[in-house]
Computed example of a mutant assay.
Amino acid sequence: MTLPLPTGDFQAYLFDCDGTIVDSMPLHYTAWLRTLDEWGCAFPEDLFYAWAGLPTADIVATLNDRHGLAMPVEAVVARREALYQQLLPTATGIPDVLRHIDDAHGRIPFAVVSGSTRDSVTASLDALGLLDRFDVLVCAGDYTRPKPDPEPFLLAARLLGVPPQACLVFEDADLGIESATAAGMAAVRVPQPRRG
């Protein structure tokens, strides 16, 4: 079944990356577990999915606060990223989203709007051979207020030169849907693939 899109004359598609274009959330979670295990820090799966879209540095800082830990944020982010990169060759795309990318590529501009680092996003898109499809990448470090704030999506629209109300957002996470809505954009929720 193809992911249904809302009606409208959309002039740009804005995509979250992890869990939206790339079925990478299980890989990210594995990388988090392996990294945090080195520090004796628990990270329940439901919390991981609830925090989808938050920058990795914010996740480490929040886990430090919650657990009374002093994990070095930059070191933990770098370790998690290295472990994710090792797992990345096994990543696959989300079929319904890939079909929309194939169908609309060349007709309207695309952007990726992610809470992940630029290195992580480019590696994920490159692993699927999709990096050249995107006109703009907006990643952690490019904005000051992450999703659910509208800033990341508004920045992407501005960089593409498209009014926010003419953008369609593809998102799998609640924080991303909230961000898109706050930016005045229509959004399509991408369901997580079922795990057997």
Rank of each mutant, 00 (worst) to 15 (best):
R145M: 11
R145I: 04
R145W: 07
P146C: 05
P146K: 07
P146M: 04
K147D: 01
K147M: 06
K147C: 01
D149S: 14
P150D: 03
P150L: 01
E151W: 03
E151N: 05
P152A: 11
P152H: 10
P152W: 04
F153D: 01
F153Q: 02
F153T: 02
F153K: 02
L154M: 07
L154F: 02
L155D: 00
L155A: 04
L155S: 04
A156Q: 06
A156W: 02
A157Y: 02
A157E: 01
R158Q: 15
R158T: 13
R158L: 09
R158I: 03
L159W: 09
L159D: 07
L159Q: 15
L160S: 05
L160V: 07
L160K: 04
G161A: 14
G161T: 13
G161I: 10
V162R: 01
V162S: 02
V162M: 06
V162H: 00
V162I: 15
P163Y: 04
P163V: 04
P164D: 12
P164R: 06
P164V: 11
Q165A: 15
Q165G: 06
A166Q: 11
A166C: 13
A166N: 13
A166T: 03
C167V: 08
L168V: 10
L168Y: 11
L168F: 09
V169I: 12
V169Q: 08
V169R: 03
F170W: 12
E171D: 14
E171I: 14
D172M: 10
A173T: 14
D174V: 15
D174C: 09
D174P: 02
D174I: 15
L175Y: 05
L175W: 04
L175E: 06
G176M: 11
I177Q: 10
I177A: 14
I177C: 13
I177D: 02
